[in-house]
Each structure stands twice: as structure tokens, then as C-alpha cells.
Design a protein around this nucleic acid. Structure first.
Lengths: 190, 190
DNA sequence: GAACATACGGAACAGTTGTTCCGGATGTCA
DNA sequence: TGACATCCGGAACAACTGTTCCGTATGTTC
């Protein structure tokens, strides 16, 4: 119902993207416990400026997380079109974990809309969920993933991998070793 | 060097265990973000009383976490004596995860003495680490666990499982499904 | 039961946090 | 350039946090 919003003033536009960038950096570093003051400082901006653009901390965080999530969901679609189903599935799993290592809040989204109020933060979450589900189903049809694997346990394992990744600074090698073992468990034929 | 400390006054002794019990309960519920006030209230005790017994929040938390850790390490020894190596290994893995679901800080210990200052909290951590290592080596000798599995990735996978367990209230069924898949990855012969 | 060390409770302090508010600066448009 | 809506900065507020302090109460000892 709200018509076309008049374009932002130039400085407002500039500050908005500054805040977004700073928030992304600080969130990546501190996770969901990042403070508004830290973001304001990083952005070289006053506190009021942040609140002018994002009425609430949650609004700001959601803007970022939703964006990340959507981008990942797109990647999933690209992958499932380009590669063979098995490779696409495992590649995307890895992609999410790598992403989580650099974006602390990622894992919290995946644990799902559990008890934690901050967990149900991303509007893009359902998109990503369905993207994952598509990859899973296709990989199973192709025989690259065990038939008895279902979404709940897949998400649980994915979330676990992300949670570890966001806490430790894994070497690439360790990450690959751990994921390799996990992937062996996901494959059929034991 | 400090000689025998005179026994605590009766009420002091009573309050000390009250605090410990309350802290355990609150820590299990709120994790490492539990507040001293919450613990004091749960214990039916003043704030000063807590600080008399535990000079610092970290001291209190460490007392509990260290105790838990030691008990788990003992369990590991018992298991490795009683059961066959493979069963002992997987049983203990499961045991830790179940424990983590009820004791929020557990997982944070396992991620190791990383960046997080609160992670290096438990003095019993090395004990548990070596307990796990023993179980692993024995299970490998018995051929129940793949030979190329080493401690770093094992701890990573274990930590991941614990982190998920402490966040979601898993049904027992989901937990078993997820662990089942993970265990398949840990076994030899693919 | 008196005397004394010990321990208790909770107000008070210092540091966070998210959020609000408003005087003053700044971009925009005639 | 002038006039005005828009936007900015950061002090101030309220609600938290861990921690300190001290008047009071309580257990212990003779």
C-alpha cells in the first residue's frame, strides 16, 4: 500500500551502505553478540544514524543475514543446474560450511527456529531449506546419497559442521578431513 | 604450602553446596551466559554468599565444569575396561553428546582452547582428551574405527555434535539418526 | 550464655548493552 | 543563495552485567 518512497538523500544513501558493510564485517567477527556501538565505530558513523536506517538491532542483522541466505540459495540453484546431482549436493554442503566460518550467524540460522529467538532471524531461511531439499532429493535419485537420509538429520549435521567452523579457525586441511568423514557417512552402501 | 584449612562453618558448608547445585541447574539451562543473580536466586542465597565461596564467576563455572569433565573421563576409563573397544568408543561418543544436551557448556570445552577465553575453562579437559584418545586408539586396533581418523577431526566432529545437541532439544530418535550417520563415516571400509 | 571469628544479604558501584531524543549540520530544490 | 525537509552525531536513559563492601546475623567455643 505504501507508494514509491522518495529516493534517499545522497549522504543518507552513502551512510546506509557504510553501516551495512561495517555490520557485515563486525558480525562476521563477533557473531550475534556484536554491539551496535562497535558497528557504528567501524562505519565511522553515529549511533543515531544506524537507528535511523534500521529501527532495531534485529532489523539490521536480519537485513544482512537475509541477504547472505538468499545469495546462498541462488548458488544452490546454480549448482543443481550445472553439476551432477551428487557433486552439487556435496559442493553446496561444503560451501555453506566455508561460508559459516566467515559469517558467524550462519549456523544459528540452520539450527532452525528452535528456542532461540534470534535463530528465526532470516526471511530467506525457508528458501535455503527448500534449496537444500532439492539438492538432497536429486542426489538421492542419482544414488550419490543414502536413501534413508532425511532433512532433519541432514540439517542437524550441517548445523553442527557450521557451528564448529564458526568457532574454530580451521585450517583448510582439517576442514576437509572432517567433512570427508562426514560425507562418507552420508553416502550409500555400507 | 597452605596447611589444613579449618572446616567451614555449618551454614557455610550448606550454602556452598546450594550454590553449586543451583549453578549446575542454571548453567544447564542458560549455558555460559547464565548470570550470577540468577544463580543466587535459584540457590535462595545473597550475591555476597556466592562471591565468598567463589571469588569470580569463572571460578564458580570452572568448579562445575571441571567436575563434569572429570566424571566423564572416569566413565571413559570404565567403558574402555568393560566393553569391547569399538562399542566403548561409540558409546562414549554418544554419552558425551547426551551429556552436552543437558549441560550447555560441555561443547565449548571440546572446541578446545581456541580464541574464546571461556573455552579453556576446564582443568579436566586434558584428562578427557587423553581418555578419548585411548578409546580411539583401541577402537582402531580392533578395526572398529577407520585407521585414518585422527584426534583433531574427531574432536571437531564431536564438538559439532555437542553444539547442535545443546541448542536443539533433539528427540532421542533424531539424535540417534544423526549420530548413526556420523558413526558410519567413522567406521572403516568404504 | 558471653564473646568472637565467620558468614550472610543486598545495596551500591562501574561497566556493558540497546534504544531514544534533539540541537545542529547538510543536502536539495526553487 | 536562501529556505526547508532531511539526516547526523552523540549525550542521556533504562536495563542489564560482574563485583565490592559493610552492617548485621549466625554458628562456634569456652
Amino acid at each position: 500500500m505504501s507508494g514509491e518512497a522518495r529516493p534517499l538523500r545522497a549522504d543518507a544513501q552513502r551512510n546506509r551502505t557504510r553501516v551495512l558493510e561495517a555490520a557485515e564485517a563486525v558480525l562476521a567477527r563477533d557473531g550475534l553478540s556484536a554491539s551496535m556501538r562497535a558497528i557504528a565505530q567501524k562505519a565511522g558513523v553515529g549511533l543515531g544514524t544506524i537507528y535511523r536506517h534500521f529501527p532495531t538491532q534485529e532489523d539490521l542483522y536480519r537485513a544482512i543475514v537475509t541477504d547472505r541466505t538468499r545469495r546462498l540459495a541462488e548458488e544452490a540453484h546454480t549448482l543443481s543446474a550445472a553439476e551432477d546431482p551428487g557433486a552439487a549436493f556435496f559442493a553446496f554442503f561444503t560451501r555453506i560450511v566455508v561460508n559459516a566460518a566467515r559469517n558467524k550467524p550462519m549456523a544459528d540460522i540452520l539450527v532452525g527456529s528452535g528456542v532461540d529467538p534470534k535463530a528465526a532471524m532470516a526471511e530467506g531461511a525457508p528458501d535455503m531449506r527448500s534449496a537444500i531439499e532439492t539438492l538432497l532429493v536429486n542426489a538421492q535419485k542419482a544414488g550419490a546419497v543414502r536413501q534413508d537420509l532425511r532433512m532433519p538429520e541432514l540439517l542437524a549435521l550441517l548445523a553442527g559442521a557450521c557451528l564448529v567452523a564458526e568457532r574454530n579457525q580451521w585450517s583448510d586441511e582439517l576442514r576437509d578431513r572432517a567433512l570427508g568423514i562426514l560425507f562418507d557417512g552420508l553416502r550409500p552402501n555400507h
